[in-house]
Structures are given as C-alpha cells and as structure tokens.
Design a protein around this nucleic acid. Structure first.
Length: 564
RNA sequence: GGGGGUGUAGCUCAGUUGGUUAGAGCAGAGCACUCAUAAUGCUUUGGUCGGGGGUUCAAGUCCCUCCGCCCCUACCA
C-alpha cells in the first residue's frame, strides 16, 4: 500500500431538494471520515464531490419555483453546500456537473468514444408535448394502461399492474408536467454507447479489481454475464451538456453519462481554484489509490457504465480501486422518502442537534452489512452513553480534578510504573485496531475501537484512583494525571475524523490548537510526554450535553415514531 | 422469474479457510468508587445462531429446501 496519493469521491447528490440522513450516511459522511483519516496521517489526498445538476427533475422544480434552471441550480447548490459545511464535510472541492469543465470533458469523452468506434447513432420515437414545447421523458407521461386499464399509469411502468411499457403504448397520453393531452410522436436521433462491444475491456478491467468487495464484483460480473446492452446517452432536453455534433442542436447528454464524469470535472474545478494538478490524480493510475463511496443502488453505474466510458476512450484514466457501498438507513424500518416527507432531512437535523452527534451516531450505526434502522431512542442511547458519559465525562473528571490539585498545570514529577506499561500496551493495541478499521473503511468497527479508547481512559483512572493516591503520594498522583492528560491529547486527535467540532473544543481546553489535523503514531512517546509547563483550562460547562427524554418525545411527535 | 445480499441474546451488531463451554456494546441485575454530566469501573442474567433436511468425528460457518426483508434486473399469456 504505497501509493503516492489518494483520490476519494462520494456519489453526487442530486441538485433538487435537501438530502436526508440516508443520503448522508451512505456516501458523503463516510467519505469525509476516510479522507480526514488519510489527511491526518499525512497522505496526499483529495476528496471531491459535486452536485448532479442536470436532468428533468431540476427543470421542473425550477419551473415550479418560477426560476430559470440556472438560477434554481445556483441556489440549490449553495443551500446544499451550506448544509454540508454545517456537517463539517471537508471537501477539497464541492463542484457541479454543470460546470464548464464538465461540459468540455463530457464532450471530450463522447468524441473519444466515437473515434474508438463505440458510439452509434439511432433513430427513436418519442412523445413530444406541443404545449410544454418539449419531449417527455418516460416517467413524465401519464395515461391509461393498455394492459389493465389503470388510468394513472406512467410511461415507464404501470402502478396498477406493475407492467413495464414503452410510453408510446399508453392510451390517452398526457403530460404530467402540464396535464396537456396535446401530444404527438416524433422521430428523433440519439447517440448510443456500444456497451455490447465494450464488455471485453470492462471484464478484463474488473478482473484486476482485487480490492473490490465481493458485492461490487458480483454485481459487475452479473451484468457482464447477462450481456451489456447499448445505452442511449443523449436526450431531447435543453438543460444539460450540449451535444457538440451536427444535427444534435437542442439535445444534451443524459445525466448518467455526464454525472460520473463530474468527478473529473470537479477535480479540474479544484485545480483551478487551488493551483493543484488534477492530472496527477486522474492520469497517473499507478500512483493513485481511488476509493468511491455510494449507496447500493448505485454500484452498477460505477462498476460498469463509468468504467466503460473511461476504458472506451482509449485514453489512460484513473479508474476506481475500491468501491465502498452502503445499504439504506431506514426510519423506524420504513424508507426515508423525500416526496412523502418521511424521515429526517439534513437541514432539519442540524437545527435539532449538533453535527458531531449525527456524525458519530451515523458512523457507529453505518448500514454496512444490511439496512439499519434509525430510531430516536437508539440515537439518544448512543450519544448519551458513548459521547456524553464515556468521552465527555472522562474529560470533565480529569480536567476538573487536575485543575483543583495542580493549579491548572500539567503535573510534573513522578515516575512511570508497571500500571503505565499496561495502559500503554492496551491503548497501543486499540490504536492499531482503529487504524486498521479506518484504512479498511469498516466504520462500525472503527467507531467501536474509538469508543474502546475512550473507555480505556476511564479504566485507567478507575484503577489508579489518583484522588486516593494524592492523599499519600502526590508525586505518584502527578504521574497518573499527567499520563491521563497526555492520553486526552491523544484521544482528541484520534476523534477528529468523526467529531471534529468536539475535538476543536477539547484542543482549546488543553491549549493544543496546533495539534488540529494531526495523527498519533507513537503512543509511547505521547504518553511519556513531560509536563513541559503545559497548561489547560477546566471546563466551565459539560463537553457533551445529553439528549433529554423530553427532546426525544418532541422529536418523535414531530417526525413520527413508526415506519411509513 | 433471475442474480446478489441479509436473517445470531430484549435492541444494535462481531463471528477469520467448519474445531474447545457462540462474542461485544446498550438495556436488566449485583458490587466497588466518589475525581466526574446519579457519571465511571468491575462482575453477572439473557441465544435450540429464521424453519426443516443433509454431509462430517465436528457446522452459525459447507450442500439442499422453505419462509421473511433489501437491492439490481427481467418479464410470458
């Protein structure tokens, strides 16, 4: 594992609307924790994300809001960006797929694919709404199902009988945008990517993805084994990356084609902003380790479609080395639903509780092996026990007692004993676990190891009883408290990847703001640090406020406490 | 319908290539301590590992089958 640099991306949140906690836990938050870990370890790493700006839903939402699509996306992008800042997501760049850079790249990929012979032109029949002055994507056509007579059937699928269909089959079709029935069938030309001929390249590539989870690999091979179908990569829309070919005026690339390219586009935005070298991440495959984070529904796009685009270009591009996929976070076992307003949205979450509470809870309960269920009581339990009781109380008891007995200074004198050796051995082992789990993107296990470190501090104090020892042997008490204090410095740094705001508070208390963003490599050196005239402040208020029963009752009243 | 995933103590989850009495945290019970946010530490009660069948000296761990949930995907008359 000696890569010069690391590239981290998380699935691009769609521009339309505020995302819910399920979106956060399945992509951006774990990516942030992982990127922070690598950064703190001193690795060269960039974490890139962006909003996925294109597509019909954005157009329609803009229309409803009385804004141009551009204005709407500008606003929505800023809204989302602010929320993510609230969660301390430390993107190196949070870009947009509607950037100039992405447009140029998307057109570039298409041109290269064409040169390599992987682009084909086909004619197709699509429904055109004369009153809306636009072609209607399948799911924006409603009508009567030709199979069962259900009147609210959509152009892609009938909710009445579950059958799939072509929108041209619908009886009495109408636009679900305007309700207009003034609809006609028009002939339209589109570009297709010939995945059917790219399967060899994709398969050979997949064979080399040794770090993929068995899940990601299985999904990839399944698609390949069934045979890839050519896919249309253009649409008759105004909003999107224009297709720069004769005869394609008024057409744009389909979102699934330009969205993943947005990872590269956003890296270019980053490069322009910072003076960084985007090519060192995307054009030097052997030097870079690339990790993608996403939810399980997104895996096939990242194992097949996007790699096919990259490989089919005939150029050298960095492809993904590890895909970390998540299951769903559910709300009391039911689905989070944007349309039905079920569950908790990210903007609201930040109003209710501090970002660190969400970050820790969501990582401790990350849906890694199966869907996991959010409940308010569970969150209260985790936060109050782990953050407030175990971590918060360690800080409080240690700093208050030391301040009282040693006048706000880190105690001097005293000698290292067997008790400290034992403490060192135990905490070193826990740190090794923590490192390993973070490096492997096993977030539940990582949080468990972190918590064990917090517990270790309390155990040490409980066993050594500095409050009793102090009465007979002040020097011994000094050693215990200094060791515990040094350990607090360690804990603060190791916790930063998940609870950065709390770490900031802690480091302010112990006057170690300069340690922000650093990691712990040598536990022995840390624990044996001398007093060095260090000072600190006793906390005036508790570090972690508990979540009260009344709050839980209120939240359950507001958001509901059962599955949808 | 096909493929993949998942079902382990009341709850949330670990369980390496099958091998001693199935583990952790929370919740419950008991004890210790009093520095601390009635906090902490220690001890401890809970499981026929979704059901059934099979292979094996030995299966939560492999095979078959059935049931529940999740994701992807495909549909015939």
């Amino acid at each position: 594992m000696s890569y010069k640099r690391h590239l981290v991306t998380s699935a691009l949140p769609y521009i339309n609307g505020v995302k819910h906690l399920g979106n956060l836990v399945g992509s951006m938050l774990p990516a942030d924790v992982y990127a922070r870990f690598l950064r703190q370890k001193g690795e060269e790493v960039i974490y890139i994300c962006a909003t996925d700006d294109h597509g019909t839903p954005a157009e329609i939402a803009a229309h409803k809001a009385g804004l141009s699509v551009k204005e709407f996306c500008d606003q929505s992008h800023e809204t989302q960006k602010e929320i993510y800042e609230g969660f301390a997501l430390k993107f190196d760049h949070f870009g947009r797929t509607s950037s100039q850079q992405n447009a140029a790249l998307t057109q570039h990929f298409c041109a290269k694919l064409k040169e390599e012979g992987f682009i084909e032109e086909k004619s197709d029949q699509q429904l055109y709404s004369i009153d809306d002055e636009r072609y209607l994507p399948d799911r924006y056509v409603e009508g009567t199902c030709p199979h069962c007579g259900f009147e609210g059937a959509r152009g892609d699928e009938c909710e009445g009988c579950g059958k799939q269909m072509e929108p041209t089959e619908l009886l009495n079709p109408r636009s679900s945008i305007s309700g207009s029935t003034n609809i006609e069938v028009r002939e339209t030309r589109h570009l297709y990517i010939k995945l059917s001929e790219l399967d060899g390249r994709v398969r050979d590539w997949l064979d080399t993805r040794h770090d993929f989870s068995s899940l990601a690999r299985a999904i990839g091979y399944k698609w390949l084994d069934e045979g890839l179908h050519d896919r249309c990569i253009t649409r008759d829309l105004k909003w999107g990356v224009s297709v720069d070919q004769p005869g394609y005026e008024g057409k744009v690339f389909y979102v699934w084609f330009d969205a993943p390219i947005g990872y590269i586009g956003a890296t270019q935005e980053w490069a322009e902003k910072t003076g960084g070298d985007w090519e060192s991440f995307w054009k030097k495959p052997e030097e870079v380790y690339y990790t993608q984070f996403m939810a399980k529904d997104n895996v096939s796009f990242h194992t097949i479609n996007f790699p096919a685009t990259q490989l089919g270009s005939g150029e050298t591009w960095k492809t993904v080395d590890n895909i970390k996929a998540f299951n769903w976070l559910t709300y009391y076992g039911g689905k989070f639903s944007t349309s039905r307003n079920h569950g908790i949205f990210t903007d609201k979450a930040l109003e209710l509780l501090p970002a660190d509470y969400w970050r820790y809870y969501l990582m401790a309960r990350a849906p890694e092996s199966d869907d996991s269920s959010f409940t308010w009581a569970d969150m209260q339990g985790v936060i109050n026990k782990d953050l407030a009781d175990v971590l918060g109380n360690y800080v409080n008891r240690l700093l208050k007692f030391t301040a009282k007995k040693f006048d706000g200074k880190v105690p001097e004198a005293g000698t290292w004993s067997a008790a400290e050796d034992k403490f060192l051995t135990e905490t070193s082992a826990l740190l090794a676990d923590y490192n390993k789990h973070l490096a492997n993107c096993e977030f539940r296990k990582a949080m468990s190891a972190l918590r064990a470190l917090w517990v270790a501090g309390n155990q040490y104090l409980a066993e050594q009883e500095p409050w009793s020892v102090f009465k007979e042997d002040e020097a011994r008490a000094a050693t215990i408290l200094r060791t515990a204090f040094n350990f607090l410095s360690v804990i603060a740094r190791l916790s930063e990847v998940v609870i950065p705001f709390t770490t900031e508070k802690l480091q302010a208390l112990i006057h170690e703001q300069d340690k922000q963003g650093t990691w712990v490599t040598d536990m022995e050196a840390e624990l044996k640090r001398e007093a060095e005239d260090r000072t600190f402040e006793a906390p005036s208020d508790v570090l972690i406020q508990k979540i009260e029963d009344e709050q839980i009752a209120e939240f359950e009243g507001t958001f509901g406490s059962e599955a949808a």
